[in-house]
Amino acid sequence: MRHIRKNTITAYLFLLPWLIGFFGLVLGPMVSSLYLSFTEYDLLTAPEWVGLQNFIEMFQDSNFWQSVRVTLGFVLIGVPGQLFFALFIALLLNKGLKGIGLYRTVYYIPSLLGGSVAIALLWKNIFGFEGIVNDFLAILGIEGRSWVSHPDYALYTLIILAVWQFGASMVIFLAGLKQIPGELYDASAVDGAGKFSQFKSITIPMLTPVILFNLVIELIKALQVFTPAYIVSEGTGGPSGSTLFYTLLLYQKGFSYFEMGYASAMAWILVLVLATLTALIFFSSKYWVHYENGGS
């Protein structure tokens, strides 16, 4: 008996830092932010219960809907775009090229560096009026403009930035491609299957679990993008709200206007949307993800 108690104490000693962090910095704050989302709170005075007012205000706020539109546009084009390039290049690199390590590095580097302020600043420059994008367009005889400061184009520069960082997904696809047993291809070749039908009936089905994984991870990441939008728009989400990402609006509400109840409400809506989307993807995966041991 005493022996068991001693073991329990030892185990909890190992777990202690995590327990403090979990209750003090994760679970406690989660409950607290749920409460705050029903209050008006500015950090300095005590929160004041206002019921659903933050949510009502939010759903009537054109900025809120603008941020939803911007973020969804970014996610709906950026994530599939990124996965497309990741898969496409992974398939090419998987054709037994010599020096694959080097190419993999080259394609991975944008993804390694892309989240930094440095690259966001670079993007602001290269899609600016004097930027290299316009230099290339000039060669083609197209007159450029400042893409980052035009409301119709600013979001696309950020989508390009996201797609440019397809390297990490590509590395995961490459690992997935290596897992596909070569016998499958040999057997289907004996049956007279051509390259394209092999791709359709072996490569893609065998890769669906990896596609699912990448899709979920990239979706979660894309919904929370902040740095490039903040840098390119200098914190405003402009021009004309065209880069007002959800997290940028949340930051402005919480930490520029100190409407922290409103910011908490926004955070909970984000969690609900994220959980719903993830659940939908996992639910749909029954119909399109192929597992080798026949489901489960």
Partner: peptide, 23 residues
């Protein structure tokens, strides 16, 4: 606790942001 730990992996940091800042 193990399930709790796994759940926090996916959790967006924004949902703990304001109370953490207050703390």
């Amino acid at each position: 606790f193990f399930s709790c730990m796994l759940l926090t992996i996916m959790l967006p940091t924004h949902v703990t942001l304001v109370p953490q800042y207050a703390i």
